[in-house]
Simulated assay, not measured.
Amino acid sequence: MTRLAAVFAMLLSLTAPMVWAQETDMTEAVILDGRTADLAEFKWTHRPLIVFADSPYDPAFVRQMDLIKDDLDGLVERDVVVLVDTDPDARSALRQALHPRGFGFVLIGKDGGVKLRKPSPWTVREISRTIDKMPMRQQEIRDSR
Rank of each mutant, 00 (worst) to 15 (best):
I141C: 08
P119G: 13
P56C: 12
P56T: 06
G104V: 00
A60W: 11
K43Y: 00
L4A: 14
A40E: 15
F52N: 06
S13C: 11
M1N: 10
R78Q: 07
A97I: 00
L98G: 00
M18D: 00
T36D: 10
A21G: 14
S128I: 03
V106Q: 05
D71Q: 11
M136Q: 05
K110I: 01
V124G: 06
T27H: 13
T130W: 07
P119L: 08
S128D: 08
V62S: 09
R95F: 02
Y57N: 05
A16G: 05
D66P: 08
D71F: 01
I68G: 10
D143V: 03
F61V: 04
A53N: 05
E23H: 02
Q64M: 08
G104P: 00
A5P: 03
S55I: 05
P100L: 00
M18T: 11
T24W: 05
Q139P: 04
D79K: 13
Q138F: 04
F61M: 10
S55Y: 10
T130N: 09
P100T: 02
S55P: 14
T86R: 01
F42D: 01
D70Y: 03
I127K: 12
K115N: 09
L32G: 12
Q139Y: 15
D38V: 07
L83C: 08
V106I: 04
I127V: 15
V84M: 07
P17I: 11
M10T: 14
L83G: 07
G112N: 10
M136V: 14
A16D: 14
R47P: 09
W44Y: 15
A21N: 10
R91N: 05
E23N: 14
I131K: 03
D111N: 14
S13R: 15
K133R: 11
D143A: 14
L94F: 04
T123D: 05
K115Q: 13
R145H: 12
W122K: 07
F8E: 11
R142Y: 08
Q64P: 07
M26E: 13
D71N: 15
G112E: 11
D79S: 12
L72T: 14
Q139L: 15
P59D: 08
L116T: 03
R142C: 10
M65A: 04
D58I: 02
K110H: 09
R91A: 12
P88E: 04
P48I: 10
T123N: 06
R91Q: 11
D54M: 10
E28I: 02
D143E: 13
A16C: 13
K133E: 13
S128M: 12
D25V: 13
R78E: 00
A29R: 07
M10Y: 09
W20V: 07
L75C: 14
S120P: 09
I127P: 08
K115A: 03
V82C: 10
I108K: 03
Q96K: 15
L75F: 06
P135I: 13
Q96L: 12
D54C: 03
V19F: 00
G104T: 00
G34E: 06
R47V: 10
I127F: 05
R117A: 07
V106F: 11
G102P: 02
L11N: 15
Q22T: 11
L11Y: 06
V7P: 06
A53F: 08
W122R: 01
A37I: 09
A90I: 01
L14H: 09
M18P: 02
V19E: 05
I141A: 06
V80N: 00
G34T: 13
